[in-house]
């Protein structure tokens, strides 16, 4: 079994391809975050943005920091925080739905002055 220590710079895919892909994903997430009426879809857009950031971290970790893969460690922390965020966010959403009987973002105006 051969050890697979391929220099990533020799790979056919440039670093910029990953960055562009993450940018597309992030902008889609931002657009969905602004324009969604359904609160669950807002949470899904946040997950998209977090995944875009993770792709960036992983690409930098592989291409620029191949020995100390700090980007991968950060990605693990981001995944952890994202799981916690999803749990608490959905619990808040359930509580809101119980109080206001809707998931429409435009009607969550309790804190609007």
């Amino acid at each position: 079994m051969e050890t697979t220590t391929v220099a990533s710079a020799a790979s056919t895919i440039p670093l910029q391809a990953y960055l562009v892909l993450a940018a597309v994903l992030f902008c889609t997430g931002v657009w969905g975050l602004i324009n969604s009426r359904n609160a669950v879809r807002v949470l899904m857009s946040i997950e998209l943005m977090l995944n875009a950031v993770n792709i960036n971290l992983m690409a930098f970790s592989d291409y620029l920091d191949g020995q100390l893969i700090r980007g991968q460690v950060f990605t693990i922390f981001v995944i952890t925080v994202a799981a916690a965020e999803a749990a608490v966010g959905l619990a808040i959403l359930l509580s809101l739905y119980r109080n206001r009987d809707t998931v429409d973002m435009e009607r969550f105006n309790l804190l609007r002055w």
Partner: peptide, 8 residues
């Protein structure tokens, strides 16, 4: 680029 070799 190219950075250090990846640890794989």
């Amino acid at each position: 680029l190219p950075g250090p070799a990846a640890v794989g």
